Computed example of a mutant assay.
Amino acid sequence: MRPLVEPGPDLTPAQRERYSRHLLLPEIGELGQRRLLAARVLVVGAGGLGSPALLYLAAAGVGTIGVVDDDVVEASNLQRQVLHGTGDVGRAKVDSAADAVARLDPAITVVRHRERLTSASAARTVAGYDLVLDGSDTFETRYLVNDALVAAGRPWVWGAVLRFDGHVSVFDPAGATYRDLFPTAPPPGSVPSCGEAGVLGGVCAAVASVMVTEAVKLLTGAGRPLLGRVLVHDALAMTWRELPLRPDPRRTGPEHLPTVTVADLLSRPGAVVVDVREPDERARGLIPGSLTLPLGELLADPAALPDGPVVLHCARGSRSAQALRAVLATGRTDVVHLDGGFAAWCAAGGPVD
């Protein structure tokens, strides 16, 4: 591929010293380093993959780094999220990330996006960047990143880890994308999260280092990127395998479901809000006045929804989207779902019972 970024100004003497090992590489050299310094790269997630990726991007001299994360640092993160320290527990991850990058190189600009990507914000958030590294940990976010970058016509780097395994690839709208690898999301609860199944910290570092290597190659035009290939890492066997990935000719593009934002919902006093979460989730907080109809019950009988305008919601939007598909299949046209779910409602300061 051609380099994604045009070179910036000539290097200063201090930059020549800092990046001297890059300058010795013919595939990068001074011109490539100037491209890196002029680049704008967005990292989705400052967790297990985003932590080492952010450090190595900054060390490589990527001039502007955006970081998207709405979470705070927890003690259980420190086993693998090397960007953060004990003193950062309770802080916003984007703030901890910015401080860590500043300690490494104060000349790097860090743009903090303390938010969770939604269908309403994804396109806007990725628009200002040359390249995106997706280290998110939910299928919902990965599809959002995929669809936003397909629409923007730009490549991106994806990585994922679980237990002792990792996957890395580079997607491009002109070739294979994440939807070719995973056409549909698995049923809720069928794939455990790292919080449920665990993950070895070193696997995060191994996968993140490949992601950053691919990013540097894409930005500078060096080497052959992982386009049309998925790298699979098995740390227990200490193997790396390469699987081919081709575009699915049946792929029809991103799905568009009728969606409302929190602001929309607050301005719809006549809509009935139906919560498709499980009862134990509602016990931890709910939207005032909402009705409960767990996803399993709704899928078994979509006609159980009340008449009139209905807004479905779950924790973050994936289950309500699944419920909405089933309802729309019955011919209903007055049902939508809440973008970002209950998490978005809370983040926007909506009242909670």
Results as ranks from 00 to 15, higher is better:
Gly66Gln: 00
Thr239Arg: 15
Arg34Pro: 03
Thr109Leu: 08
Arg179Phe: 06
Cys314Lys: 02
Arg268Ala: 08
Ile28Thr: 09
Gly63Gln: 06
Thr86Trp: 14
Ala97Leu: 00
His313Ala: 07
Gly135Pro: 02
Ser51Ile: 05
Ser20Ile: 04
Ala185Arg: 12
Cys204Lys: 15
Pro13Glu: 11
Leu257Glu: 01
Val230Cys: 09
Ala58Leu: 08
Arg91Phe: 04
Pro183Lys: 07
Gly221Asn: 08
Leu295Lys: 08
Pro254Val: 01
Ala59Ser: 11
Pro26Asp: 11
Gly270Ala: 11
Leu231Val: 15
Glu30Pro: 05
Gly253Lys: 03
Ala347Thr: 12
Arg251Asn: 15
Leu131Lys: 01
Ala329Arg: 06
Ser193Arg: 14
Val145Cys: 10
Glu74Thr: 14
Gly8Asp: 10
Glu242Val: 14
Arg284Ala: 11
Ala120His: 07
Ala348Asp: 14
Pro9Met: 08
Ile28Phe: 06
Asp301Lys: 11
Pro9Phe: 12
Ala59Cys: 11
Ala75Asn: 09
Asp172Pro: 05
Gly135Glu: 04
Asp264Ser: 12
His167Gly: 05
Ala120Glu: 12
Val216Ile: 15
Arg246Tyr: 02
Thr184Asp: 15
Thr252Pro: 00
Gly340Pro: 10
Ser209Val: 09
Tyr143Lys: 01
Gly317Asp: 00
Ser318Val: 04
Val150Glu: 12
Leu305Phe: 04
Met211Pro: 03
Asp165Ser: 12
Val276Tyr: 06
Leu265Ala: 14
Gly32Trp: 04
Leu227Ala: 03
Val260Cys: 09
Trp158Glu: 01
Gly90Asp: 07
Gly47Cys: 07
Glu74Pro: 05
Pro155Lys: 01
Arg34Ile: 11
Ala92Arg: 14
Arg112Ile: 00
Val336Leu: 10
Gly317Gln: 00
Tyr19Met: 10
Leu49Asp: 15
Asp172Phe: 03
Leu54His: 03
Gly159Arg: 04
Thr141Phe: 05
Pro9Trp: 05
Pro106Val: 07
Glu17His: 15
Ala98Trp: 00
Met1Pro: 08
Gly308Thr: 06
Trp156Met: 04
Ala60Asn: 13
Val310Lys: 06
Val41Asn: 01
Ala222Arg: 06
Asp105Ser: 10
Ala344Gly: 09
Pro306His: 06
Leu266Glu: 15
His313Asp: 05
Leu286Gln: 14
Gly317Ile: 02
Val68Phe: 02
Pro173Thr: 06
Leu31Ser: 15
Gly340Trp: 02
Pro192Asp: 13
Ala58Gly: 14
Leu54Gly: 04
Val126Arg: 01
Ala215His: 01
Gln33Asp: 08
Gly296Ser: 07
Ala323Trp: 01
Val216Cys: 09
Gly253Ser: 03
Ile65Val: 07
Val262Pro: 12
Tyr129His: 06
Trp240Lys: 05
Leu55Glu: 08
Arg2Cys: 05
Leu324Trp: 00
Ser318His: 12
Arg91Gln: 11
Val191His: 13
Pro306Phe: 08
Pro306Ile: 13
Pro7Ile: 08
Arg229Leu: 09
Ser267Met: 14
Ala127Tyr: 06
Asp234Trp: 11
Cys314Gly: 02
Gly195His: 13
